[in-house]
Every structure is written in structure tokens, then in C-alpha cells.
Simulated scan of single mutants.
Amino acid sequence: MTANQQHMIDVYRSAQRGEIAPPMPGLHDWDAVREIRDHRRATRQGRPGPLRRAAARILAAARGGGSAARPCA
């Protein structure tokens, strides 16, 4: 089954259920390619990508601190 055939089945099924139809295949391909390119550029330069920055922010908030250094005990 091709992607177009599967999409037609999904559109029919969503219409029967009264749901929003899924996006057409290939609609967001260039967005995904850009995100991969940006991620690779960021990792090549030694900078963390947006996912790692978000994870670091969440972990810092969960530990109860920001970017302040903790004293050694």
C-alpha cells in the first residue's frame, strides 16, 4: 500500500468519525529536513540543540536551582 492510499483510508476514517483529516503525505517533509540540518549544525559546533537546552532547563528547575554553582561539602 502506498502512502497516498493509506492517506485516503485515513481521510475516510476521520470523516466517518467526525475528526480532523490528517495532513497529506510529504506536507511537512521540508520542515523535518530543516530541523535535522539545524540540529546537525548545532552539534557540530559543540552547542547543545534545542531539545538538550530544554531538558537542561527542566532538570535545573527540578533540582531547585538555576545556573548557580553549588558549594562543595
Rank of each mutant, 00 (worst) to 15 (best):
L59I: 05
D38A: 13
N4P: 00
R44V: 02
G49Q: 02
I9C: 10
G49H: 07
R53C: 10
A3C: 07
M8S: 04
A56F: 01
G66I: 06
R63T: 08
R41P: 00
D31G: 15
Y12W: 06
V11T: 02
A69M: 11
P23E: 11
A55D: 12
R52W: 11
R41Y: 00
I36K: 12
A21M: 06
Q6Y: 00
Q5I: 08
I20L: 12
R53S: 12
G26S: 01
G66P: 01
D38S: 10
T43D: 06
R40W: 04
E19S: 03
A42W: 01
S14E: 11
H7K: 09
M1E: 13
A21H: 11
E19F: 06
H28S: 10
A60Q: 13
G49C: 13
P23F: 07
G46S: 04
A21W: 02
Q16K: 13
R13L: 13
R13E: 14
R70C: 04
G49R: 05
S67V: 12
H39Q: 12
G18T: 07
T2S: 15
D10Y: 01
G65C: 10
C72Y: 02
G66W: 02
Q45W: 00
G46H: 09
C72E: 09
R13D: 06
R37F: 01
P48M: 11
L51V: 14
R52L: 10
A32K: 15
E35K: 13
I9V: 14
A60F: 01
G18P: 03
R34K: 15
V11W: 10
V11S: 01
G46P: 02
H28R: 15
A56H: 12
R53N: 05
M8Y: 11
N4S: 12
H7E: 04
A60T: 10
D10K: 01
A62M: 15
R47T: 06
W30E: 07
R34D: 13
I58M: 10
L59C: 07
